[in-house]
Design a protein around this nucleic acid. Structure first.
Lengths: 277, 277
DNA sequence: GTCTATAGAATGATAGAC
DNA sequence: GTCTATCATTCTATAGAC
């Protein structure tokens, strides 16, 4: 009876029961599941893992598909163990932990490949799930991006405010804010890095409109910093702000990790923008 | 015999010949074509057009598919007539003209929807062709984009050089170049506008590498303009150039046609970047 | 909470008729 | 040079078993 599980590890309970019945053994699908569970073999992953451990360390006689199932299971369980102590007995993720994993993986891929260039499949693979399972955590791809974008800007505003709080010199305050902006977008975690790409990489109008609000708070903050500056009377502060913002986001194109640090870049940028008054 | 063409205008020559043969008339597919051509009815578009003209001005009894064929043909022929004098007798496009139409339509869509967001089908529809026909003119989607990008930057360099030729003041020269940059990207034709999006909207590595060379020439030009400026000794000219480039390309995000002109924007930007020396 | 299985639409590209 | 017809993939999203 367990021979069957070894020969066709990917058969579900229903298929296995049918197979056994046609071989003369009267057993229901739930009966199959009961026995599997007793031997800790109730998922395809576990059945394959058992085979791999017992029979053939080289796994040379497993199909590509079977290897994929194993790999996926390994990734999924690996991630769960990384998260502190919240893993359940059989390796299923705690609810919030899994959501967070998906957000991180998705953010990383969105930054690297763009919104349209990233599929739910890509994201699912990263966290060791099948595509359909992602939809248990997020209702659709768009909401997933919105969640990341929102969180990214929230963190940016918080970090930015914290950085300038202790400083009173307007130019120094602006420089500190710029350093945070660059550091977040270049060296931050995946979620922090998404702030820079929202405007350029999203071509879906409806989605774009959903993102505007997130940006607005940050824009306001920057507007205030620029308003406090001591600039020549004829300088257009709106243009000043937009030029600075463009320069900041353009670093995404040329920034290389080993070279200038975000702090140094901010310093040089402000030097460039500061009229020698 | 022509009744058949009226009843089933979408049947090809082969189908029509078979139909006629089973009705007792011995005729080959090429015979059908010969007669159709004599009556100027050799394409489905022409047959449908004839029906529409003769029978029913409201076209209410045509299927959606038939209306689509008519519309496509109309677009295709409309474009051909717009191009000066090169249209052939039956409305087929001259070779270079058609290529140019495809380039223009594709550029427009790439700018609006991004590279990944634009399908060959979208492009084909714009010029009144079927998707497969686009591949007669361009071997693949990537080559199509590369061709547009190359032409866009070629034009930008030419325009830029022409604009600064007569001017000798370094700051004024830079301002003129900036004005051309903004004007091309905001108010230029579809091909000119593609220059601004290449870096942000393309996430395919291989394609991105094919585009680098196009940008290099222009970058060199800008480098030279910045080198000629009279800047404070401690200013980092590399950062200066990159900041300016970022500010220029960022206009794409906030530029609105009715408000400031590209010339005015360039003027204000340079004012912002020019230390009050 | 994850999986199996699949719907249903869109995509880039090709072969061969005309 | 354009069309017909189609392939093989890929995509987002869902239903229902477990």
């Amino acid at each position: 009876m367990l021979l069957l599980a070894r020969r066709y590890p990917q058969h579900g309970q229903a298929k296995a029961a049918r197979e056994l019945k046609s071989a003369g053994h009267a057993i229901s699908p739930s009966g199959v599941r009961y026995i599997w569970k007793k031997h800790n073999l109730e998922t395809a992953y576990k059945r394959l893992k058992a085979i791999a451990a017992l029979r053939d360390p080289t796994m040379s006689n497993l199909t590509a598909n079977q290897l994929a199932i194993l790999k996926r299971g390994d990734i999924s369980r690996g991630l769960v163990q990384d998260s502190r102590g919240s893993n359940t007995a059989d390796g299923a993720a705690a609810p919030d932990e899994r959501q967070n994993q998906i957000l991180q993986a998705a953010a990383d891929l969105f930054v690297k490949q763009g919104y349209g260039g990233t599929s739910i499949r890509d994201i699912a693979q990263r966290v060791g799930l099948l595509p359909g399972s992602v939809y248990h955590h997020f209702p659709c791809k768009e909401d997933l991006f919105v969640a990341i974008h929102h969180e990214g800007f929230r963190q940016l505003v918080v970090r930015s405010e914290a950085a300038i709080r202790a400083e009173s010199d307007p130019w120094k305050r602006l420089e500190l804010a710029c350093a945070v902006h660059i550091d977040s977008a270049m060296e931050g975690d995946a979620i922090a890095r998404i702030t820079a790409i929202g405007l350029f990489a999203i071509h879906e109008d409806r989605l774009q409109r959903r993102l505007e609000k997130d940006r607005e708070t940050y824009d306001q903050q920057l507007r205030k910093l620029v308003a406090d500056l001591d600039l020549p009377r004829k300088t257009n502060r709106s243009i000043f702000r937009l030029a600075l913002l463009g320069a900041l986001n353009w670093t995404l194109i040329w920034y290389r990790p080993g070279k200038m640090t975000p702090k140094q870049i901010a310093r040089e940028l402000i030097r460039t923008f500061r009229a020698s008054t």
